[in-house]
Amino acid sequence: MAKKEKNKIKLAIYWGAACGGCCVSILDVHEKLFDIVAAADLVFWPIALDFKYKDVENMPDKDIDVTLFNGAVRNSENEHMANLLREKTKILVAYGSCSHLGGIPGLANFSNREEIFKRVYETTESTVNPEKITPQTKYKVAEGELSLPEFYNDVRTLDQVVDVDYFIPGCPPQSERLMEVFTAIVSGAELPPKGSVLGALDKSQCDECPREKSENKLIKEFKRPFEIEDDGKTCFLEQGVICMGPATRGGCGVRCIEGNAPCRGCYGPPTSVSDPGAKMMSAIATIIDENEPEAIEKVIDSIEDPAGTFYRFSVPSSIIRRNIETSEKKAEQAVV
């Protein structure tokens, strides 16, 4: 264990249900990593450093100054670590879309555990599993009992499991933003109120968006990006492409839009919005340029997957957190 230097803070980084992109985004600070290391002792970072869970368990409570927790809570291991790190950490930060809103893993909330296992271990085209072997939480072998974390029925955000101090949004968060936040924490400056979203703007994407916007937003048909001949200048919405920009917090530097792709909403909603999907649905529905039920439905039908489109990164944190039908099925199974 590294010796604690004076004025150095203890920093932990952990990944729950995540792709690893968040950890990579930390590495993406490149040479500034040296600044981080200069200012902080990395006490736990499974992707980069060899620490055991035991080491963390053995730390005194609130020993860690800052933990950047990325990834959603998908299984019992994630949950255990979230609880453990909360206990050991002064400032717990939900880092990245997954721990902030549920993120891409959160899309699993459209299904339940059984469906996922069935798909993954039985029906995927590349699977050969005639005995239908599925992961068990406990398994006895000659050497003793083996255990695996329990795969939960739904995906949760970090703050649905433990108390979170700050959120840094993004899939992944922009490295520049991380450095700003990190610098602020290290400098000992007064931090914003608990629960704040750091490393992002208050206003939404459009404020930074360079595309030309007008009031001509009425839509007769929704198109997917490849279906339009993008002029590279006009607001995506005005071209019939759904862009989550208006309901998404700015701060990412409009990277997707710069790359001529509409915003998908990874930065989550601005402060004034609780459920970005609901707000965006309301906005998008309002500008449909039809008045007759059949015509309206036809326009709506041109959106392939509304739930997935409007809640791409935020299903677990949304109002209707999960598919109610599959959850009901689960409940029925439980009764049986």
Partner: peptide, 23 residues
């Protein structure tokens, strides 16, 4: 004038979303 049409559009939108959410 036309607030009810806006409501109508949101209603159908919501219907599609809720169907997806298994309701």
């Amino acid at each position: 004038h036309e607030g009810n049409y806006k409501c109508l559009r949101r209603y159908y939108f919501l219907k599609k979303y809720l169907t997806q959410m298994g309701m």
